[in-house]
């Protein structure tokens, strides 16, 4: 399996990562390794623990046990905003754009970790602050252009369609040029045309040097796009390797399609 591949320094590595909730283990001793570069998929049936794993990695949920390394540093106890500062960005399964703010302002919040002006600099409108703000606005516009929303920069985010809000979330996450981008079901609620455009967008993002880890339900989408796949079922990692192997793995088929279909496939 993937473990046999030549060892490279991984961008993200969890080991024994576990999160318990009353009465269930949402994430159960998961070892996940994401090398730098490329698209990596995290798949599994509903309730498998994919979103919880994203929340653990991005620091919004504290682990019950296990640890997380990012870019060579142990970040297990780091707050979410510190992880963002280290170059980790994410989107949410249930869209969380800042609805009252304009698209440009949304994208600008993604640059927050890069702003260094002091209160005095801000109030006095010192040249350094003005320069920083101009630079940030330019970067935010680039991020909107990346997702194809540049022409709507001054509109309120709440006015966007569902699919456009998803793309705005990606722009917000990409504005700060993160090393790792976590996408939680980015194609959910998108029509087929939008999904195709999303695939192209993710390829473009990878081209900029950002590593993508995505959760997705649409198997077809994942298989065509990903360099590696990790499969979760009931909180446990049941597979990790290239997408073609995942498709052929009996355990994955069983988890994904249900035992009935697996039995039928096995019978053929």
């Amino acid at each position: 399996m993937a473990d046999a591949a030549p060892r490279r320094v991984s961008l993200l590595a969890t080991s024994g990562l576990t999160r318990r909730y009353a009465g269930l283990v949402a994430v159960d001793g998961v070892d996940l390794t994401v090398p730098e570069g490329g698209v990596h998929a995290l798949i599994g049936p509903n309730g498998a623990g994919k979103t919880t794993l994203f929340n653990l990695v991005s620091g919004l949920v504290a682990p019950s046990s296990g640890n997380i390394r990012f870019a060579g540093a142990d970040i297990t106890r780091l707050a979410a905003d510190r992880r963002a500062r280290l170059g980790m960005a994410r989107t949410f399964q249930n869209i969380r754009v800042f609805g009252a703010m304009t698209l440009l302002e949304n994208a600008l919040t993604g640059l927050h970790p890069r702003l260094t002006s002091s209160l005095v600099g801000i109030v006095a409108r010192l040249p350094a602050f003005r320069r920083e703000e101009r630079h940030a606005v330019a970067r935010a516009r680039e991020a909107l252009a990346l997702v194809g929303l540049a022409s709507r920069a001054e509109e309120r985010a709440a006015a966007l369609s569902y699919g456009d809000q998803r793309r705005l979330e990606i722009a917000r996450a990409m504005a700060g040029a993160p090393r790792l981008l976590l996408l939680d079901e980015p194609a959910a609620g998108m029509n087929p045309a939008e999904t195709v455009a999303l695939s192209a967008l993710i390829r473009t993002i990878v081209g900029t040097g950002t590593t993508v880890l995505l959760v997705e339900h649409d198997m077809h989408f994942v298989m065509n796009l990903s360099d590696s796949v990790t499969v979760l079922n009931f909180g446990r990692r049941i597979f990790s390797g290239p997408p073609a192997e995942a498709r052929a793995d009996p355990g994955v088929i069983e988890a994904y399609l249900g035992t009935k279909v697996a039995a039928r496939l096995a019978g053929r």
Partner: peptide, 11 residues
């Protein structure tokens, strides 16, 4: 608007 999303963007 959303403290969790704000935190995830680095606030």
């Amino acid at each position: 608007e959303d403290a969790t999303a704000a935190e995830a963007t680095g606030v």
